[in-house]
Design a protein around this nucleic acid. Structure first.
Length: 496
RNA sequence: UGCCCGGUAGCUCAGUGGCAGAGCAGGUGACUGUUAAUCACUUGGUCGUAGGUUCGAUCCCUACCCGGGCAGCCA
């Protein structure tokens, strides 16, 4: 380690770990331990000496003292600081405007005012970094669109602080859910050479000089001269590689960034997003749906347990029905309905559809919304889709009619967002898989290793993909995917 | 990519074919155990960009740029 020596670390102002109450803070004030606002607010009694460091949310000056609301991101709430005008450091208070970083040492006492249990009476007050009048985050309301333009500052707002605390917690819960169940975490590649994963347009990865690329004798770009000796892309899914590991380690999952180059302009699509893809050997479609349901419920329950204050904030300011919806979802089994049944429900609905409903066509957004928001009023898993509209690797349903062939695909639809999970039982029978590839005009030589999995010890297996950001939207009630990812990448936008 | 909505002060918005407006933020002062504090005064503008119509355009028209929504694609 470069800075393994504690003294050297201290000299550079670097603290070794995430700082928690009771741990030594090596930087600003080595003599004292820093307390996080979260911990100070939960104090069981007054404290003679406490050190807090954070950012000023707002300051209110009285004649004899100033009130400063200090937030350090450890929780939604801030801590009220009282700086008395008789204090020598009171001269610094004028610099402690909204956004400034400050350190406060003082006494934690029961608050004289209403609105908070504890407050800190400062003995020492230091402004570490001023924030002048150009600081864009005001005390009053900002639109989400404006905050997106200042993505480097928006985590300091109540809403985004809460969103990213929940995001962190849910990422942890993802691992916890699978690790508790004996799943192995597999790191599938980000750069891939398979250009037909079938999940959408891909970003090219190249080191070729675009102004002057090497050409073949036929005058075409010579990809054999590229970095990897062939055309390469950013992954759109780790599924095919996850299948390799599922047929060795039985239960695996991936959790990583995923890239889609579609020119989508919607509130629920991003060019770069995080996806969780479990892959389970010896598991059929019903088992896959069971896993998806318990996974979604687990994540909701975990957020309720560990991010209660943040969820309350969302319920109050973002989505009034959030709490009721999350509880409703937890309390009952998700509905399940076959694609064929869904088509019948839609045909019988009496609704006039912008896109007509016909067996064999994809379900449109309006259809999915009707099923989950109006008909079932609940998350619903639609399964067994027509073979022709689904991916080549999905398993042909046993006993389906030859003129209405279906595959074991399933989509989990939730109110307000639509598809949050897409999965399937994979075709484990070599000849069926080859037929599926032929149907989709895929060349077997590009999938030789995928076919080998069916040649050597093939097993029934299933999996799905959960869009992490879509799950966050569902849990927080935040309506735009750009607001649940720290720095959104969408067509035309890659700031920060 | 298609359709729709928007772009006016740092932020949120109103407005009119004829002198550019409010609230908040900023500044000054007053007041106050305050809580998005309050009160008074006050600074602040290339009305997205480029053309066009017009005596005159922030306003009407066209194109473009940017933002947003919906649809498709999907997670």
């Amino acid at each position: 380690m470069r800075w393994s020596n504690p003294a050297a670390r201290r000299a550079r102002g670097i603290s070794r770990f995430a700082i928690r109450s009771g741990e030594r803070l090596a930087s600003a004030t080595p003599a004292m331990q820093r307390t996080l606002v979260k911990d100070a607010l939960q104090a069981s009694g007054p404290m003679d000496s406490i050190l807090l460091q954070g950012w000023v949310r707002t300051r209110r000056d009285a004649k004899a003292f100033s009130f400063i609301e200090l937030n350090d991101g450890s929780c939604l709430k801030g801590l009220q600081i009282i700086v008395d005008a008789t204090l020598p450091d009171y001269a610094h208070v004028a610099q402690a405007s909204t956004g400034a970083s400050v350190a406060v040492q003082g006494r934690l006492v029961a608050s004289q005012g209403g609105g908070q249990k504890w407050e800190v009476v400062a003995a020492q007050f230091t402004v570490l970094g001023e924030a002048d009048a150009t600081y864009p985050l005001q005390k009053k309301g900002h639109t989400l669109e404006f905050l997106r333009e200042i993505a480097h500052l928006r985590p300091r707002s109540n809403l985004f602080g809460a969103v990213f605390r929940v995001r962190s917690r849910l990422a942890y819960a993802v691992h916890q859910f699978f690790q508790e169940r004996g799943f192995c975490y597999v790191h599938t590649p980000i750069v891939t050479a398979s250009d037909a994963e079938g999940a959408g347009d891909m970003f090219r990865v190249t080191t070729l000089d675009l102004a002057n690329p090497p050409k073949t004798e036929q005058g075409e770009i010579d990809h054999s001269k590229d970095f990897f000796g062939k055309k390469t892309f950013l992954t759109v899914s780790g599924q095919l590689e996850a299948e390799i590991f599922a047929t060795a380690l039985s239960n695996v999952y991936t959790f990583g960034p995923t890239f889609r180059a579609e020119n989508s302009h919607t509130s629920r699509h991003a060019s770069e997003f995080w996806m969780i893809e479990p892959e389970v050997a010896f598991c059929d479609l019903a088992g896959d749906m069971d896993l998806a349901e318990s996974f979604v419920k687990y994540l909701i329950r975990d957020a309720q347990q560990h991010c209660a204050a943040d969820l309350e904030f969302f319920a109050k300011f973002v989505d009034k029905e959030l709490a009721a919806r999350l509880n409703f979802v937890l309390e009952r089994p998700f509905q399940r309905c076959s694609y064929t049944e869904a088509v019948e429900i839609l045909a019988r609905s009496g609704k006039t559809w912008e896109h007509p409903v016909a067996w064999g066509d994809n379900l449109q957004s309006e259809h999915e919304r009707y099923l989950t928001e109006e008909h079932f009023k609940c998350p619903v898993t639609v399964y067994n889709y027509p073979r022709a509209i689904k991916a080549f690797y999905m398993r042909v349903t046993d006993g389906c009619a030859p003129d209405r062939q279906t595959v074991g695909a399933m989509d989990l639809l939730v109110p307000g967002i639509g598809e949050i999970i897409g999965g399937s039982q994979r075709e484990e029978r070599l000849e069926h898989l080859r037929a599926g590839m032929a149907l989709h005009h895929l060349e077997e030589k590009n999938y030789w290793w995928y076919l080998d999995l069916r040649r050597y010890g093939t097993v029934p297996h299933s999996g799905f993909g959960l869009g992490f950001e879509r799950m966050l939207m569902f849990v927080t009630g935040v309506a735009n995917i750009r607001d649940v990812i720290p720095f959104a990448r969408t067509p035309g936008t890659a700031e920060f």
